[in-house]
Write a protein that binds this DNA or RNA. Sequence first.
DNA 1: AATTGTGAAGATCTTCACAGCC
DNA 2: GGCTGTGAAGATCTTCACAATT
Lengths: 227, 227
Amino acid sequence: MARLPVYLRALHALQDRGVATVSSEELASAAGVNSAKLRKDLSHLGSYGTRGVGYEVEYLVYQISRELGLTQDWVVAIIGVGNLGRALAGYGGFASRGFRVAGLLDADEQIVGQEISGLTVRHIDRLEDVIGEHGVSIAVIATPAGAAQGVCDRVVAAGVTSVLNFAPVVLTVPEWVDVRKVDLSIELQILAFHEQRKAGGPDGAGGRPSALDSGPPEPVHYVEAAE
Amino acid sequence: MARLPVYLRALHALQDRGVATVSSEELASAAGVNSAKLRKDLSHLGSYGTRGVGYEVEYLVYQISRELGLTQDWVVAIIGVGNLGRALAGYGGFASRGFRVAGLLDADEQIVGQEISGLTVRHIDRLEDVIGEHGVSIAVIATPAGAAQGVCDRVVAAGVTSVLNFAPVVLTVPEWVDVRKVDLSIELQILAFHEQRKAGGPDGAGGRPSALDSGPPEPVHYVEAAE
DNA sequence: AATTGTGAAGATCTTCACAGCC
DNA sequence: GGCTGTGAAGATCTTCACAATT
């Protein structure tokens, strides 16, 4: 279930604040979901709550981590060390929770050999070697669009079964391989769509892109984030 | 509808290849969706196809662009110029389709004043000025988690109504503001979950994280991507 | 008294299958 | 003949509301 990581993050935040026990209502609001949904999601993992009391934070953290496979380490390779690949290589969230970056690869001779976040960038020719040597099971593709499918085919042939794709293409993979896609321009386009809606729709009378003086519908005060 | 940007990208690829007309079947497969779904999605925009023929690529590109609000320019500010913010600032997908980055802001004095992708980084104190001067309607938050909600509150107070959040927190916003979230570690966790499934589930007998020798279920040849 | 776990109802999304049109 | 547009069926996801349990 795609919401478990969100719950896990909220639970970690509670843990940091020293909270030992939490109700579905509280946790749901921290995670930004409905409490019935949260209870149903959690009940799929087993009966880890206590009626009348709530959930024990630490126990639930462990159970969700186990369910997500975070109790073991996963080996990651990042292919494409441009701006984005560099940002990913330095991203703390990788290392922190069971994801170990074992290789950075690029086709550009200028970049190969550079040391980034403690790793030396290797040439894309060595892709299969790196995957084999380190037992990489997750590949992060941060190449230009044109190179992505070729790289994907190669990592799959080398044994990778999960791909996180940042290139703006729909990757074709065998059915036993999982692909997830992160596409910045799609996210922006979805926001633009909603912006336009607010400004009166596509054929509305002179929608203003930079909707500054429209202001909020009502001067409402709103609460701070739970974090 | 969140799939329109995907269709649009597939259509642009067809356009580049000089294709003038496309059937729902072809376009659906390029976009990785079911053809009935594609037709239903498109029919929501109006009746832009011709029975027995298909859709005229150029006309459809225009209609979807219009629906998504890409026929006008949107002004974007990026807050937080770390590794990720830098990658975003240099990302071609921003400029190419109607998104103009008008400001880069950071709290770190070391970073303020640096020139990145043709823009000078300004101090976060000037956030409201930058938003006002340029008519920013979309804010991209690429700050550390702890700073994100505060920054969000400020951009909202300054008139921003769409937020693209890269910080690993659930942002709380007034109901008239749209938030989209991109979370790398959540994507990785979802992949880890599926990896584990393949390896035999959380309590399976010794699941191997680096599933190298498990190999594909069947030695099937698979087709290349459409683009 | 409080809160979980869950049937049942409701909402939404997906797919089928075919009438209608070119 | 071929393909779109869409009603109806099916699947899935969400929410309600309450019995079960501590």
